[in-house]
Design a protein around this nucleic acid. Structure first.
Lengths: 164, 164
DNA sequence: TATTGTTATACTCTATAACTATA
DNA sequence: TATAGTTATAGAGTATAACAATA
């Protein structure tokens, strides 16, 4: 918003400011980019993550941390490799994510009964409390998305993007 | 979808592998993540970018480089700050992107006639050739997406995600 | 031999801050 | 004073490789 005056300031009046859809985009042609879904998916992802991060800023939970906490909370003693596979992240990266969550006392790594190579992951009581709050804030974020897109479009996006 | 097996899982060998849509996702409950668009947009973005990168691997053009080349090619002597604003990237990051493209002789930074602080950006003849090939390969990538989603869903996604 | 968790490395991306040369 | 391009830094994310303990 309020970025619509950029062009006028420049050399001479010859730079026509086309009134773009939301007054956000400058008068620069995107050419073939307009037909490429990847470009718009990327921009949408950035927008959504920024809103998510802002909404959960006071409990300092990132989208990645949120997804890990949700999956640990919704399952029973998962191993790290199972979580990594479910969320499509590298197991090496998950190690660092879990270190942080463990150092904040949100999760615990218990020895797995069956296989001593594995850890069985759990939320701590404090982790459950924080996750509950995170869910409330995340729902607020999602409501903002629903308002922006309309409930049907939101649901359609959810259904369609699940295929990836 | 496919999150209904949580209870059964906890007991013994009954770890039923629910036949998920594409046989990709393991039998781990995603819980609330299922209602969050950001999660699926992120996964879709990663999938799409990986396919794009693979498809353009032989000319070594990344999604970011492609978007920069497209915008330079579709406009007339843009400044760096205009490109950065159009694509929603930091001007500091654009500097490094352009260094690479310039060192590969795909673009040129010409002095701007009106404002000596600015560069006027152009494709080189070689840049035009590479961009033409990049467009062909990118179209092949996009066709794959259209086949995956169906033409109507693809168009709908394009229209809906443009709002961000 | 293979797998799980771990450490380490490298490269990209994002977010800033600060510098210079121009305006 | 402000802006355009640049440099530098720090943190996240991604992609690998390799190692120890265990299977």
């Amino acid at each position: 918003m309020a970025t619509t005056t950029r062009a006028q300031k420049e050399a001479l009046p010859f730079r026509r400011v086309t009134p773009t859809r939301r007054g956000q985009r400058p008068a620069v042609a995107l050419g073939r980019l307009n037909g490429h879904l990847g470009y718009f998916v990327r921009r949408a992802q950035i927008w959504i993550f920024q809103d998510f991060i802002r909404t959960l800023a006071r409990i300092d939970i990132s989208p990645a941390q949120f997804s890990v906490l949700i999956v640990i909370g919704a399952n029973h003693g998962l191993s790290q490799i199972e979580i990594a596979a479910a969320l499509g992240i590298e197991r090496a990266r998950l190690v660092r994510l879990l270190h942080r969550l463990e150092s904040r006392a949100l999760i615990r790594r218990l020895p797995s009964s069956a296989d001593r190579r594995r850890h069985a992951l759990q939320l701590t009581p404090h982790g459950r409390t924080v996750l509950a709050l995170a869910k409330t804030l995340a729902a607020r974020h999602e409501k903002r998305l629903i308002n922006k897109l309309g409930a049907e479009h939101h649901q359609f996006l959810l259904d369609t993007l699940r295929d990836f």
